[in-house]
C-alpha cells in the first residue's frame, strides 16, 4: 500500500514535470534569479566580514620581539601585558604560526614558499578595548623589554571598521527584505501555475484520491524546481566569486576563500528546495479547498 502510494506519487510527479514545461521554466527561473540576488548579498556580506576581520587584525596592536629574545623570555611578558586595563586580550603568535597566516592571507606568498625562509619573529597581538586608545597602548608596548618593533593601524583603519559594521547591518536588513519578497514571488508563481490545474485537483478529490496523495506530487515538483533554480544560481555565483577572489588576492585584498563556497552552494540548494516546497505547500492547500466553476 505504501509502496503503491510512493509509486503513484513518483509517476504523477514525472507526469507533471513532463507536461508543464512553461510552469517549470517560470518557477525555475524565478527561484534562480531570486537566489542569485540573495546569494550575491550573502557572498558580499561574507567578503565584507573577511575583510573586516583582516582590517581588525590591522587594528590590533602588534609587538614584535627582537630576534635574540628567547621564546621563554618573550612568553614571560604575556601575563603582565594582559593585566593592562586598556587591553582586552593578548595572543602570543609564534613565528611559525604568523608565517602560516601570512601565506593563507596572501596566496601569492604561498607560491614563493620554498624560495624564502620565514622572516618573521615571535609576536604578541593585543586586542584593545577601545580603538581610541591604540596609540597609547602602542607607546606602552614599545617600553616592554624584548620588544623591538610595534605596529598598529591608524585612525583611518578605525573608521573603516565602523563603516563596515554599518554596511554589515544594512546588508542583513536588505537580504531579509529580499528573502521575504522572494518567498512571496515564488509563492505567487506556484499559485499561478496551480491555477490552471485547479479543476484537475478538484476532480482528483472527487474520484477518491486523498489530499495528501494529490498534494505530494505538487510538493515534490515544487522542490525539484527550487533545487534546479538553486543549481543554476550556484553555476553562476560560484565561478564568478572564484574569479573575483583570485583577482582581489593579486592586490593583497583577501575575499572569502574558495573552500567556503562549497557550504555556501549547499545552503543555496537547501534554500531553493525549501523555497519551492513552501511556495507549493501554501498554494496546494489553497487549491485543495477551492471549488472551480463548471460550465454545462
Amino acid at each position: 500500500m505504501i509502496l503503491a502510494a510512493l509509486d503513484f506519487i513518483c509517476r504523477e510527479t514525472v507526469l507533471h514535470l513532463k507536461r508543464e514545461r512553461l510552469i517549470a521554466i517560470a518557477t525555475v527561473s524565478t527561484v534562480a534569479v531570486l537566489l542569485i540576488v540573495l546569494g550575491s548579498i550573502v557572498l558580499f556580506l561574507a567578503d565584507l566580514k573577511t575583510w573586516t576581520g583582516w582590517m581588525t587584525d590591522q587594528l590590533e596592536v602588534c609587538g614584535f620581539f627582537a630576534k635574540d629574545t628567547t621564546r621563554e623570555d618573550a612568553l614571560k611578558t604575556v601575563d603582565p601585558i594582559s593585566a593592562w586595563s586598556e587591553v582586552e586580550s593578548v595572543r602570543f603568535v609564534t613565528k611559525e604560526e604568523g608565517w602560516e597566516r601570512q601565506k593563507r592571507d596572501y596566496p601569492s606568498i604561498a607560491r614563493l614558499e620554498d624560495a624564502i625562509d620565514n622572516p618573521l619573529p615571535d609576536a604578541v597581538q593585543l586586542k584593545i578595548r577601545d580603538p581610541e586608545q591604540s596609540a597609547r597602548v602602542a607607546k606602552r608596548l614599545e617600553q616592554v623589554p624584548g620588544i623591538e618593533a610595534v605596529r598598529w593601524g591608524g585612525s583611518l583603519a578605525q573608521s573603516l571598521v565602523r563603516f563596515n559594521r554599518a554596511v554589515n547591518w544594512s546588508g542583513l536588513v536588505v537580504s531579509l527584505l529580499v528573502a521575504v519578497a522572494g518567498i512571496l514571488i515564488v509563492h505567487n508563481t506556484v499559485r499561478l501555475a496551480l491555477h490552471s490545474r485547479r479543476r484537475e485537483v478538484y476532480i482528483m478529490q472527487l474520484v477518491g484520491a486523498t489530499r495528501a496523495l494529490i498534494a505530494a506530487p505538487f510538493l515534490l515538483e515544487g522542490m525539484l524546481h527550487g533545487l534546479l533554480g538553486a543549481a543554476l544560481a550556484c553555476c553562476l555565483l560560484v565561478p564568478v566569486h572564484m574569479y573575483l577572489r583570485d583577482l582581489a588576492a593579486r592586490s593583497f585584498f583577501p575575499l572569502t576563500p574558495d573552500s567556503a563556497l562549497l557550504p555556501f552552494a549547499l545552503y543555496l540548494l537547501l534554500a531553493g528546495a525549501v523555497l519551492g516546497f513552501t511556495g507549493s505547500v501554501f498554494s496546494v492547500r489553497r487549491y485543495l479547498r477551492h471549488k472551480p466553476e463548471w460550465h454545462g
Binding site: 500500500m1 503503491a4 502510494a5 503513484f8 509517476r11 507526469l15 479543476r199 484537475e200 476532480i203 482528483m204 472527487l206 474520484v207 477518491g208 484520491a209 486523498t210 496523495l213 463548471w294
Partner: peptide, 20 residues
C-alpha cells in the same frame, strides 16, 4: 469531469490513487 489526460490515464488514475 475528465482529467486532462489520455482515456487510458483517466481510467487508470482512480485505480492507482486507491492503491490497486
Amino acid at each position: 469531469r475528465l482529467l486532462p489526460r489520455t482515456a487510458w490515464e483517466s481510467v487508470a488514475f482512480g485505480l492507482h490513487a486507491t492503491g490497486r
